[in-house]
Design a protein around this nucleic acid. Structure first.
Lengths: 381, 381
DNA sequence: GGCAGAGTGTTAGGAGGCTTTACTAACAAA
DNA sequence: TTTGTTAGTAAAGCCTCCTAACACTCTGCC
């Protein structure tokens, strides 16, 4: 309880809480993002309405809009005649006039990619067979897919986004992705260099959460559980992505949920993944009639609910989203999860907590990768 | 996946992600805070070193320091003769020349308060018997204790901080605190009005987390479990407090941890609180010899570890802190919790995860309440 | 002893950002 | 036609930071 605490923190190499200096131009950038953010989510708006929405003056807004017009990011869309006064000129973001290239590396066997508009609509899709490639070969393959998609784009591309499995730090360095044989790989930097465009990389589950947040209308505090070959989670709290102490937040797949359960690839037993991953679910329900399958799925749902209960309580989540095959997740499993959460947490926490399916299905990761680019390049999310 | 998502979000009254306009003076305020933050944690520093630490120029730093000198917040402390060049004039924060009044309402029967210096050292302590008061009477009592402490202060008081049980929103409104008969009570606003000083209110567990974070040297992503009459948690992730969708983050006491367990005050059964709260622990260990008591405590520790495992995994916490009676917590219970966490989570997540006692003991909430003030008034935490 | 080199802090000038104030433009209602 | 309202623009001013240049004070070296 002394002022020297900070010194010891420093001596420990933990560093002070990272705060960065702010310059006048950052002010401008922030306000510019605020305008784009509003136009992105609310659609065409007059300058005067933008001023009211942002709290800035009409003068400043006019100036910002002029700059955005010059950049081609927004356009004037004609007047809106309303009640009294001079009719307003609507200004809208040119969401169809720019493209984003997004890549999804979450699947082990096939790498998916797309050219998207700023509203997240796919204009072109491509995929490449991974064919067992790992390490640098896999990086080459990623670059190849990205280049092809860049060629496909018919509009200026503002950046490339990528969702990758493994631990990824905020700078886009893949700290560790065992299945891809990547370790401490500055993937974002490498691709930025090779492609000559800004490239942003994040964990695939985090990316999925971003996608649902921005394009799927998810709540401000929520968790997206991604169920595929493995189980992961992306978490957004109070509107911000959770990274965690070692950038490994969301690793829910390897929590023990069954004592003395089935052996897991991680070397331990009874991990959530041994029950909830798609292969496990398929295996467990194979050959069963609908009723019996539902009983199995409900059992898994109860286990999931039990595991999520402390998380939901600790974070006061506004929503839990499940992303994965609807035939497995969106039925008995989801209902059992919901019910178990209600049974095992305070009413105030879970009574109005929707457990629902993610809305973007297969494209979550791609959409989220696009959001990565939007957020970094335009300040929009 | 359309641009109109934002519109529907808006129509739902959820509002857009709250971004506020930034003005030139906010730039100044931010940089000013950065200087104070550095001085607070690193101790006396020269202007040139501040420039290097913040990234701002010496010119700007000199200007900021001049303003802080004029306000009396910092002082010059003589030259530091070193190698070549002009000797540097050290500048230090006048942490002993200002006071903060902090109040701790976490105990049902007694309300504690203190006058603290900016380094969190108690200069004066007072407490008042709550004597069953609730509602408006309790507000009056809080105001009375605060006024007495303000009279005790021998230095200018920069603000009042308060840690209260219940759900508290970021504006210091107590949404709900059943035991105090408070509901939707703008406590911070009321006290600010009555005392004529800035008053900041937060949940007691959150406050405890803040205290440990700033004065206790806790990690950037951590959870403080407060064990007292009830069980709560304060969570800091990536350096920011977690509020949650309904400002009720941290309500871990009422997660079900035992199927068909003992009845809980909340109306359900088997809540964590029925095992881990201090009264429950005392009851369970009463009259047992040390060995038997440890066995009981280890059992509770295992249950706690099981409940925390999904939280630790999901958030990739850097630390878990236990706050409460050391004779109960800091032994078999803590060890069992640690071991259970290791057993039930990925190695990468838990191998280097310390589960340790909070360092501030009884004063955590008071210290955290002071941090509330420091953070709000000076931008320091 | 004196001078070059280095590091600290200040002064002067300038660029960028937002605001207030005041204006023009365009429309509805009386 | 007049009045009132709303949208957008122009000019002036304040705030913030930066770069460039300088004064000051110390060390090291000839």
């Amino acid at each position: 309880m002394t002022a020297t605490t900070g010194v010891s923190r420093r001596a420990l190499g933990l560093g002070l809480r990272a705060t960065a200096k702010v310059l006048p131009e950052h002010t401008r950038a922030h306000n510019r993002s605020m305008v784009l953010q509003h136009l992105f989510h609310a659609g065409p708006t007059s300058r005067a309405d933008l001023a009211r929405a942002t709290g800035l003056t009409r003068v400043t807004i006019s100036d910002l809009v002029a700059a955005l017009l010059a950049e081609g990011l927004v356009e004037e869309l004609g007047v809106r005649k309303g009640g009294v006064g001079k009719p307003a000129m609507l200004v809208g973001m040119r969401t169809e006039e720019f493209h984003v290239v997004a890549l999804d590396l979450s699947d082990e066997s096939v790498m998916r990619g797309a050219v998207l508009t700023l509203t997240g609509e796919a204009v072109e899709r491509r995929s490449l067979d991974v064919a067992g490639r790992t390490g640098d070969d896999l990086v080459d393959l990623v670059a190849r897919l990205a280049r092809r998609l860049l060629d496909d784009a018919t509009r200026p591309v503002i950046g490339v986004g990528l969702g990758s499995p493994g631990v990824v730090d905020p700078a886009g360095r893949v700290v560790e992705a065992p299945n891809r044989r990547w370790a401490d790989l500055p993937l974002a930097a490498i691709l930025t260099e090779r492609l000559g465009l800004p490239v942003h990389v994040a964990n695939d589950a985090d990316t999925a959460a971003l996608g649902e947040y921005t394009y799927g209308g998810a709540a401000d505090s929520m968790l997206v559980l991604t169920v595929g070959q493995g189980v992961g989670a992306g978490i957004i709290l109070d509107g911000a992505r959770v990274h965690g102490a070692g950038n490994a937040a969301g690793e829910l797949g390897h929590v023990t949920v069954v004592d003395d359960g089935a052996p897991c690839a991680c070397g331990r037993r009874g991990c959530l993944e041994t029950l909830l991953a798609v292969p496990a679910l398929r295996r467990a329900t194979a050959g069963l009639d609908a009723e019996a399958a539902d009983a199995v799925l409900a059992g898994v749902g109860r286990v999931l609910g039990t595991a999520l209960a402390p998380v939901v309580s600790a974070l006061n989540l506004g929503e839990v989203l499940l992303s994965g095959p609807a035939d497995l997740l969106d039925g008995a499993l989801r209902e059992a999860t919901t019910q178990t959460l209600r049974d095992r947490t305070m009413r105030a926490v879970s009574a109005h907590l929707p457990v629902r399916m993610a809305t973007l299905d297969e494209d979550v990761v791609l959409a989220g990768a696009a959001v990565l680019v939007l957020a970094a390049q335009l300040g929009v999310s």
